[in-house]
Amino acid sequence: MTIYNSIGKVYSNSRLPDLRIVNSLINLLNLPKKSIIADIGAGTGGYSRAIAQQGYSVYAVEPSSVMRSQSVEHARVKYFAGYAEDIPLANASVDGVICILAMHHFSDLSKAVREMHRISKKGALVFLTFDPRLCEKLWLVDYFPVYRDYDFRVFPPINDVVELIPNYTQRTVEIYILKLPHDLTDMFAASGWRRPEIYLNPEVRANISALALADADEVEKGVIRLQEDLETGKWNVKYGEIRNLSEIDVGYRFLCAKR
């Protein structure tokens, strides 16, 4: 049982793969078409399908039955029930591995990293993760303080992860900044940095773990304040300058671990 069995019931409605992230993952993997890629913590399989559509085969590994039940079949995607710490794939059975905004949910990151290394041949392990310590406070925190509290509690510092991976895989890790565009289709936590209206949507909030797992009364207070500030123009006065930006760095990073 995972937390997404309770909070991931409509995950596929707002967590749609963003093609720019898909292309970044493929570029970092640097594998020929028809290679086999393992997607660990694949969720509903959105990114698995998007990568398969680019000509790759994908093994999508996800422990939550609720998440897997929302997956859409694709001829080049095979789904597996399993945890990152005990991946149900054979040694050296894939050419590369991706893990998208999932490592903070692993019970044992070191064991998960060892497992990803075990199943991969010579290809890279590519992670997309987040470190709130790498950015200035986003306006979202003024309405939902629980968001920042959650992030600092569950997301390990990037430097700690970068040190951990070589210790268990003898791989070299490179860090790449993901600047968030203003029109992301994957509505993860900070994706609405220029679209505050999306946080008024309960379905979007349900698919952001920091808000879905927080005290419902505290979240509702933030929603009411945000709605009032948007209606009165107060939000625009305080934060409107952010609408002049086309992209922003708020701490999302790709990690590419190579042999």
Rank of each mutant, 00 (worst) to 15 (best):
A189N: 11
S35Q: 06
A75E: 15
V219E: 01
P17S: 08
I177T: 14
Y79K: 04
L29H: 05
E174A: 14
G233D: 11
R205H: 09
L138R: 10
K234R: 15
P196E: 05
E241R: 13
A102T: 12
L200Q: 06
I208Q: 13
D151T: 10
P202W: 09
Q170A: 13
I36V: 14
V61A: 02
N27Q: 12
A190C: 09
V58P: 04
V97M: 06
G251W: 07
N244K: 15
I21C: 02
R118N: 05
R76A: 15
A60Y: 02
V66L: 04
A189P: 00
S93C: 09
V113G: 07
E85Q: 11
A75G: 00
D217H: 13
E231W: 00
W139A: 11
Y176H: 15
Y239H: 15
L109Q: 10
I224W: 01
Y59S: 08
R253W: 14
N236D: 15
V161E: 03
I21M: 12
C256N: 11
R76K: 14
N207I: 03
I3A: 08
C256L: 07
I100D: 01
L184N: 09
R15C: 09
I165D: 01
I3L: 13
E220I: 06
Q53L: 12
V22Q: 05
V77S: 04
H104S: 08
M116E: 03
L178I: 01
E136Q: 13
N244T: 11
E163M: 12
H104P: 06
K258N: 11
F106Q: 07
V22N: 02
N91V: 13
R148G: 00
S107K: 11
I51S: 05
V237A: 11
R225V: 06
Y252I: 00
T185D: 05
